[in-house]
Amino acid sequence: MNEILSRIADNCWIELAGRWFLGLTFIYASYHKIVAPANFAKLIYGYDLFAGILINPIAIILPFVELVCGLALILGFYPRSAALIINTMLLSFIIILSINLIRGHEFDCGCFSSGRSGYASSTEMTLVRDIIYGVIGLQIFLFRKPRKACIAI
């Protein structure tokens, strides 16, 4: 079992597929936040965890971190750092989701669409999805063999 896992983790094609999948996912996730930053800011407000002064800067910067890291993964531009940043964002989001899940505060995660408030997606499903992304990110981060299709490692 360990050998199979290690062969998967060391497979350069799986690493490439993971990078493209995660990259495209994050580019897609950034799109609606960039075209409607006010809606995204409102969603962050809905998390009820951030000081007011931080909400707009987060709403402005975060989508571009997603976009740039997504592009970096696809182009193979500092992929290890891009995976580290993406996993840091995922971990932060998992913590935020968990806090809100524990205290029963339901909200729209706004992950892939700035839905109108009141249309909360399943927090548990979002958690599972983020953990899967995190595993893919970890494989990219820990990959030690020569990578395919990279412009700057």
Binding site: I34, V35, A36, P37, A38, A41, Y45, G52, I53, I55, N56, P57, A59, I60, I61, P63, F64, V65, L67, V68, C69, A72, Y78, R80, S81, A82, L84, I85
Partner: peptide, 29 residues
Amino acid sequence: DSFVLVGISVVAAFSVNFFSPVGIALVGR
């Protein structure tokens, strides 16, 4: 390298927000 990626993101984010017709203020209400 992470600082490079985040730096690019921050510069792009504030530039786009400044020029974008849907941009938001640096501090909301």
